[in-house]
Every structure is written in C-alpha cells, then in structure tokens.
C-alpha cells in the first residue's frame, strides 16, 4: 500500500518553486534579446528599400521644405563586409580547424599545452587590441589602410574560437570509433580525416559560425584597418566599407535619414548572420535518419 508521505506537500511545493525559478530566469534572459531584436526590426525595416540595397553613399540633400532626404544605400557596406569576412574566414578556417585537430588528437605534449594557453589568451583579448596590432604591423608598414589588413585582424579573432570549439567537439567523438578505424589498419591521419572529422562536422561548423558571427559584427578592429569607404570597392589593398562601420558612422550623424540607415544596417547585419547560420546548419545537419 502506498500512503502519502508527510512531506509530500512540501516536496510538491519545492518542485513547483524550482520549476518556476528556471522558467523565470529563462524569460528574464529572453526579455532583452526579444526587445533588442524587435526594436532593430521596428526601426530598421523602414529603411529597407530598393535604394538601400542598390546604392552606395549619397551626400544628404536638403529639400525645399527644409527636410533632409536622399540617404542613399549601403551596398558598399554589404559587399565590403562579405569580402572582408569571407577572406578572414578563408584564412582562419584551415588554421583554426587544423590547430583544433592537433590539440584534440595529440593532446599530451608540451607544444599542445602552449598552443592551448595562447589560444585562451587570444580569445580573451579585446578586439581593439587585435586592431591596434594589425594597424601597427600592416597599416603602418604598408602606409595604406586596406581591406586585407581588416581580414587579417578578423582572422586573428576567429582562429581561437574555431580552434577551441573544434578541439572540444573532437574530444566528444567516441574513442571506440577511432579504435574501430585503427583496428581496420587505418593510419592515425586517415582515422582523423575519414572518421573523426566527418563525425564532428556539424559541431565544428557551429564553432565556425560562432566565429563568423563574432567577426561580422566586429567594429573596433575595422576602424583601425579598413577605415571605411563611401563607394563600392572591391580592391583588397585599399580602404573598404563594412556594415558595422556604417552603423557606427550613420548613428553619429545629425541627419535623421542617415540615422534610419544605421538601423537598417543593423537589421541587415543581424539577418546576414542569421541566414548564414541557418543555411550552414541545414547543410551540415546530421543525416542519421
């Protein structure tokens, strides 16, 4: 026979209380996120029109009625961001993933310890510091602000994120799978290439996306390296525009039309990261079914 314990009511209450706390904390965490996102959409959606996506910077004109109009668009920023971040990704991806493989597959040697420590320091470094380094090492030496310098700075920011996620994910691949490959006569590098990496691919991609999202939104290093450009430019060795730079620049102007552009840019930046995120997730979803 099952009788109700004397503390049954108390247990129930504690259960409700705890569940309430976790739900409350989740809601609390979601509030700023939802507020920011919806405000960006609310303010930014109005800026999105054909001109926004097809024009570069246009000088503001004051209309006959005294209103400031003709804000132009951010095409130069969209193209610039894609180029700068794309090149940064091309530089950071192989270095980050290979370093992650090294840390995970050959963990117990002194080089790995040093690499791991440096990666941790690097991932905690403020982005402006990286920007200053790129400025001194590249911009000052070449006497030229350039998109390439910006890509290098962003790549330096991306590498530690990619390296550490790759390492963590590879460590999660069951040891038994490596054993199975080893027992079939696969050399270590072949095990890693054909069994470990494919198994961990979707996890590694998550790390790459984190790095991509972080780099896309970075402003400080770009200020010191790519500088900005009012025109559409695809020349890697010259200053280039970038979305975060435009958000920064247009927020800080007296013209309301340009302020609206800043919101639009923020929205596009958010959507860009979201789209890339979702599409990569879709492309690397686990095919277990």
């Amino acid at each position: 026979m099952i009788t109700q314990a004397t503390n049954y009511r108390r247990r129930k209450l504690v259960d409700y209380g705890m569940r309430g706390l976790t739900i409350g904390a989740t809601v609390l965490a979601l509030i700023p996120l939802v507020l920011i996102l919806s405000y960006v959409v609310f303010r930014g959606a109005g800026a999105l029109n054909i001109a926004f996506f097809t024009q570069a910077y246009e000088p503001p004109v004051v209309g006959l009625d005294g209103e400031v109009g003709n804000a132009g668009g951010v095409l130069h920023g969209i193209i610039g961001s894609l180029i700068i971040v794309g090149i940064a990704l091309i530089m950071a991806l192989p270095i980050g993933i290979l370093a992650g493989v090294f840390l995970a597959e050959y963990p117990s040697n002194s080089v790995a310890t040093v690499v791991r420590f440096c990666t941790d320091v690097l991932s905690a470094a403020p982005s402006i510091v990286i920007g200053v380094a790129a400025y001194v090492l590249i911009v000052q030496r070449t006497h030229q602000f350039s998109a390439l310098a910006g890509s290098v700075a962003l790549a330096v920011l991306m590498v530690p994120v990619i390296t550490r996620t790759t390492e963590e994910i590879l460590k999660l691949v069951p040891h038994t799978m490596r054993e199975a490959a080893m027992a079939l006569g696969a050399p270590k590098w072949w095990q890693t290439l054909t069994v470990v990496l494919p198994t961990a691919m979707s996890g590694i991609m998550t790390g790459v996306l984190l790095a991509f999202a972080r780099a896309t939104g970075e402003t400080a290093p770009l200020l010191l390296t790519v500088l900005g450009n009012n025109n559409v430019s695809v020349k890697l060795l010259e200053p280039m525009a970038a979305l975060p730079l435009l958000t920064y620049k247009y927020t800080d102007t007296p013209f309301p039309a340009q302020n609206t552009l800043a919101w639009g840019t923020a929205l596009v930046l958010t959507l860009l990261v979201l789209t890339v995120n979702l599409s990569v997730r879709w492309a690397t979803r686990s095919r277990t079914k």
């Binding site: 069951p174 038994t176 799978m177 054993e179 199975a180 490959a181 080893m182 027992a183 079939l184 006569g185 696969a186 050399p187 069994v195 494919p198 198994t199 686990s286 277990t288």
Partner: peptide
C-alpha cells in the same frame, strides 16, 4: 602496427559503427 592490423581484424564489445 598499421600493417599488422590489416592482417588482424577486430570486433569490439560494443558495436562501434561509423557515422556513415
């Protein structure tokens, strides 16, 4: 060891299929 293992196959306690 790699060549040795190509002559000696192994089946483990728990099934360890590849995610392939």
């Amino acid at each position: 060891a790699v060549l040795l293992r190509r002559r000696i196959g192994m089946v483990f306690q728990r099934p360890n299929v590849f995610a392939k």
